[in-house]
Design a protein around this nucleic acid. Structure first.
Length: 480
RNA sequence: UCCUCCUUAGCUCAGUUGGUUAGAGCAUCUGACUGUUAAUCAGAGGGUCGCCCGUUCAAGUCGGGCAGGGGGAGCCA
């Protein structure tokens, strides 16, 4: 049996000393030919492995380099130095994997996030990315935990879909037809998919919502949590071509129920990370603080990362309607002084990110839930309000990130839904299976979608979404 | 896709009005030292200045194009 070792997290958690232990991990630094800072990914903290002078031959000593993988056995003792409570006094050290110091790109120094993105396969071995991906794990776990406790069914919606009418964005095509121009064609010149693998045009999913609604009409409460694909040419710090999305769908919920659940959900998963990843968040908080010091005073955020999360968890989100938001924006001095690139003049326009940021970061200084948008700027499936102008939509806007959740009460009335689909040129025949939910036992229901990487960004304080997913996919980039 | 900035050693960056042999810190290698905390000290190696074209007696430096990257915008989660 090889794996008989103690994880560094467990070892550091206890103050016990004077016992034999074996640790395995990767060398972060090797100081003084004597002190190894060893990390195994279980925690951001390293165990100090002490090699007593003359106890190792020179050849082995030379192989203890940054990045090398080693197994160390010895006695855990109270540290003779400052900076750590306990350390391992090595009686034997075995090199499990060498790491050529001249070639290993990670050095015991600060690297830029841009450089680390180019070596994403190795960046897990840094403090920052170790912390990020442990937090990401905790958030993912907390999501399942939250819904499971509430009796939701975890639904796996298809990744390959035949419908391209979801309207959520450009889609990636899925096909086994040849790309050399010899694919079969219809008379009008378009590709004939009859002989394609699925016998029809298929794409990667942009949302599992429509399928989620089908299941909610049987289980009452379901959620999806899986990868989603958008072929948009988006080059920003908050968009990916492949990202993970959480989409709960609840029967017997109206817009208010929906908002309540979304707010409770966000607070739950943040709280979970704060309770289970304290050290990682403290590290990330410190990292952010140092990054902020580079910025001019007026651009720095008022709260530190942990303070910000504390605040979000302990305060109610602000809830206002689209109409109220327009009034606030129209009357604010920022608008009157013409400081917006897009000035707010009339009801009905879509809010730009500068407006959302103003509301969240300047006006309310907390997460904001915006409701009841004009129907013209929202999707076909959102429930029409009695005013004939708005739909029961809600977006949750978070400081620094912008839109983090988009949701709505769904239009359960068959006639209203099909009418709206026709107005918006959504082919009803292609979504006939979806309309069956309205034909057979329809009920008021609601749901929302939450971009997983966006919440990971929010909790870790990372500015670029490409740094919170292990191997980011975006235009012109699909390495690893 | 649009706007804008950037690209010089393995990494982070200096490099003056265009002018002789392009620098620093860290990393790496060699040696010294040994209870260090990104150890310290001494020495050494390391460059097609992103690529192509142009202006000029002369280009890391000026102009154009291309590529890659950052930030912002749009689309959205």
């Amino acid at each position: 049996m090889f794996g008989k070792r103690i994880k560094i997290k467990e070892l550091l958690l206890s103050d016990n000393v004077n016992y034999q232990a074996t640790v395995m991990g990767w060398v972060r630094t090797f100081r003084n030919n004597q002190f190894i800072a060893l990390n195994d990914g279980s925690t951001n903290n390293n165990i100090q492995v002490v090699v007593s002078l003359g106890s190792l031959d020179d050849i082995t000593l030379k192989r203890i380099t940054t990045g090398a993988c080693i197994k160390a056995t010895g006695e855990i003792i109270a540290s003779l130095g400052k900076g750590q409570k306990v350390e391992l006094n090595a009686s034997s050290i075995e090199i499990l994997g060498d790491s050529d110091a001249e070639k290993f790109p990670l050095q015991p120094k600060k690297h830029s996030l841009e450089f680390l993105r180019e070596i994403a396969h190795l960046r897990f071995r840094t403090n920052t990315f170790g912390a990020i991906f442990r937090v990401r794990h905790s958030l993912a776990f907390a999501i399942h935990d939250f819904f499971n406790k509430k009796g939701f069914v975890y639904l796996h919606t298809p990744i390959i879909t035949a419908s391209d009418a979801e309207g959520a964005g450009e889609m990636f095509k899925v096909t086994t037809l040849p790309l050399d121009g010899t694919a079969p064609r219809n008379e009008d010149g378009s590709i004939n998919f009859k002989d394609d693998f699925f016998g029809r045009n298929t794409n990667l999913t942009v949302s599992g919502q429509l399928e989620g609604e089908l299941a909610a009409m049987a289980f009452s409460d379901i959620y999806t949590f899986g990868p989603t694909f958008r072929a948009e040419n988006s080059n920003t710090t908050r968009h990916l071509a492949e990202f993970w999305m959480i989409e709960p769908e609840m029967a017997f919920h109206d817009l208010e129920d929906n908002m309540n659940l979304a707010e409770e959900f966000i607070k739950y998963i943040i709280r979970y990370a704060m309770e289970n990843n304290r050290e990682d968040l403290e590290f990330l908080s410190q990292r952010l603080e140092e990054e902020e010091k580079q910025k001019p005073q007026n651009e720095r955020s008022e709260l530190g990362l942990i303070q910000k999360l504390d605040f979000v968890v302990n305060n109610d989100f602000e809830r206002i309607t689209y109409t109220e938001a327009i009034d606030i924006l129209k009357e604010c001095s920022h608008n009157k002084k013409k400081k917006f690139n897009y000035l707010i003049d009339k009801w009905g326009i879509d809010l730009q990110s500068e407006h959302e940021r103003y509301l969240v970061e300047k006006h309310f200084k907390k997460p904001v839930i915006l409701t009841n948008y004009p129907k013209e700027i929202k999707a076909f499936y959102m429930r029409q309000n009695d005013d004939g102008k708005t739909v029961a939509a809600m977006d949750i806007l978070a400081p620094g990130i912008g839109e983090i959740v988009g949701g709505s009460q769904r239009e359960e009335r068959f006639d209203k839904l099909t009418e709206r689909m026709k107005e918006m040129h959504i082919p009803t025949e292609e979504l006939d299976w979806y309309l069956d939910t309205r034909r057979f036992g329809a009920c008021p229901h609601a749901g929302f979608g939450l971009g997983f990487e966006r919440i990971v960004q929010f909790v870790t304080g990372m500015g670029n979404i490409r740094d919170v997913i292990p191997f980011p996919r975006y235009p012109k980039s699909a390495s690893f």
